[in-house]
Amino acid sequence: MPLVTTGELVADAREKGRGVAAFNVITLEHAEAIAAGAEQAGRDAVLQISENAVKFHGGHLAPIAAAAAAVAGASSARLSLHLDHVESVELMRAAHPAGFSSVMFDASKLGYGENVEATADAVRWGRERGIWIEAELGRVGGKAGEAPLDAHAPGVRTDPAEATAYVRDTGVDALAVAVGSSHAMTERTAALDHELIAALRDAVPVPLVLHGSSGVPDEEIRRAVASGMVKINVGTALNTAFSGAVRGFLDSDSTAVDPRKYIAPGRDAMAATVAGFLGLLG
């Protein structure tokens, strides 16, 4: 099926009172697993490639983007292509020719005023090209290279009044908010602030995005969607499933040298994880 736009998937989910999951693509097998999991669940999904994944591929966006788009084109599921956690303006501008319909422009490390200015510039760029822009307000810590951050520390969570002004002044299409989750969690122990989610839902007119969903328990994700979260980002959970399956295979067969033998169960484990998350979203 041809790629659909992220904006369309998010709008459809929001209208139906459900969530749509966005899964991180690092390798071709990630993209294949996401497509397979979406087909198994009969649900839409977003294939998202982060700036860190682009760095892993030598700084070259086009090859991994083309691979993900080709996988989506061969799938029966409705899938979109999203460029995630982009701090580089140059990389953001590469999104349009590479076939992306959306970008998460991340200026969250800047001071509030600089964040607003940089994000508003990104939104203007996106409007001219039909690119849907997501941004982040608050601090969802845990990404590689960042200092540890307590998701419950004072000043970390997104303030509804500030979010109202931020969305008004930047014009973003979606807002990632800090409500108790953290990136790169390998245990699903995060406790979300559902009252804050509801307050943010009422404060801003755009869809809310939950980053760091790999560390959020099933029931917390269900409640988050019911409280107003729409786009649910998942990354580490796929890597955990993949690594566990590969490790198990190699532990059982120390003579294996054909990577297809152990990558296949890893890909299958990721697909099952994708289908599991999609089943939570209403």
Rank of each mutant, 00 (worst) to 15 (best):
G142W: 04
E114R: 12
Y112D: 03
V209R: 07
P97I: 01
G228E: 11
A107M: 07
A163G: 10
R168E: 15
Y166L: 09
A153F: 00
G215M: 06
E162Y: 03
L192M: 11
V167P: 12
D169E: 15
T189D: 06
A144H: 13
G212H: 09
R127A: 14
W132A: 05
H211M: 05
V179F: 05
A203H: 03
F100G: 00
A174Q: 07
A190P: 04
D159N: 04
T158Q: 11
E187I: 11
E162F: 01
R93P: 11
G180R: 07
E128P: 09
F100E: 10
Y166F: 15
V206P: 09
V216N: 13
V204E: 06
A190V: 11
L110K: 14
A122D: 14
S101W: 08
G145R: 02
V225R: 15
I221K: 15
E146M: 10
V156K: 00
E195L: 10
A94R: 07
G113C: 01
G180A: 07
E128T: 08
A107S: 15
P205R: 14
A224D: 08
A147H: 08
S181A: 14
G111K: 06
V156T: 00
D218G: 10
D121N: 03
G212S: 09
D106L: 08
A163Y: 04
D169V: 04
T170V: 11
G126P: 13
V167L: 13
G212F: 02
P154H: 02
V225I: 14
T164D: 11
A163F: 03
V89M: 00
T119W: 04
R168G: 15
V177W: 04
E220M: 15
A174S: 15
T164E: 15
L149D: 00
R157W: 06
V116C: 06
V216T: 14
E128F: 05
D150K: 09
P207G: 09
L175I: 07
G138S: 01
V172L: 10
R223A: 09
A94F: 01
P205S: 13
H211N: 00
R139I: 03
E117V: 07
E90H: 03
V172P: 04
A95E: 11
D202N: 06
V216D: 08
V206Y: 07
Y112W: 08
V89Y: 00
G130V: 02
